[in-house]
Amino acid sequence: MRRITAIEKHGHGEPCDTVRLDHDQRNRRRMVFTTRAGQTILLDMPRPVHLRDGDWLRLEDGAMVKVEAMGEPLIEISATSDAHMVRIAWHLGNRHLPTQLLPGTCGGTIRIRQDHVIAEMVAGLGGQCSPVIAPFDPEGGAYEGGFGHGHHHHDEDDHSHTASQIHG
Results as ranks from 00 to 15, higher is better:
L57R: 04
D17K: 11
G145W: 05
D55S: 10
P48T: 11
G104F: 02
C106K: 13
S78H: 01
Q39F: 06
Q25C: 06
D158E: 13
K66M: 15
A123L: 06
Q39A: 15
G127F: 05
R95W: 02
A134E: 04
N94P: 00
E76F: 02
S160G: 11
D157V: 13
E68Q: 06
Q165V: 08
T99S: 09
S160V: 03
T99G: 02
K9V: 13
R2I: 09
K9D: 02
L21R: 02
L51A: 04
H116D: 13
G126K: 04
R3Y: 08
H96L: 12
H152T: 12
H159I: 06
D61E: 14
G168E: 03
F147H: 03
P103K: 08
L97T: 08
A119S: 14
D22H: 07
M64T: 11
S164K: 10
R111L: 14
E156N: 06
H151K: 07
S78L: 00
R2C: 07
P135C: 06
A142E: 08
G93T: 07
P103W: 01
A69E: 01
S164Y: 01
F136E: 01
V86N: 08
V86Y: 04
Q165M: 14
A83C: 02
L101V: 12
R20F: 02
R111S: 01
Q165A: 13
V117R: 14
I110H: 00
P15L: 10
H12L: 11
M121R: 07
M45R: 02
I110W: 00
E8V: 12
A123H: 15
I75L: 13
R52A: 09
L102W: 01
A69F: 02
M70W: 00
H12F: 09
I41R: 03
L57C: 11
A163T: 15
N27E: 04
Q25T: 09
V19Y: 01
H10L: 12
E72V: 05
T18V: 15
R111Q: 09
A134W: 00
L101R: 06
I166E: 07
S81T: 15
V49F: 01
R30V: 04
A142V: 12
R58S: 12
R111W: 05
C106Q: 13
D24E: 12
T5N: 07
L21H: 01
S160P: 00
S78A: 13
G124R: 13
R29E: 08
T80N: 10
T105N: 05
E139P: 00
T105D: 04
H12C: 03
G124I: 11
P103T: 13
V86I: 12
P138V: 07
L43S: 06
T80V: 06
L125T: 10
G54V: 06
H10R: 13
A163E: 12
H149M: 10
I77P: 03
G71E: 10
A63M: 12
A119W: 00
G127E: 09
K66E: 14
I166F: 11
L21S: 03
E139Y: 09
H23W: 15
D82T: 11
H10G: 00
G62D: 14
E120M: 06
R3L: 10
M121C: 05
I88D: 00
E156L: 11
P73K: 07
C129W: 01
G168Y: 03
K9S: 09
E8G: 09
D115L: 04
Q128L: 10
P98L: 09
G93M: 04
E8T: 12
W90F: 15
T162V: 07
C16S: 15
I7C: 03
I4Y: 01
H161W: 14
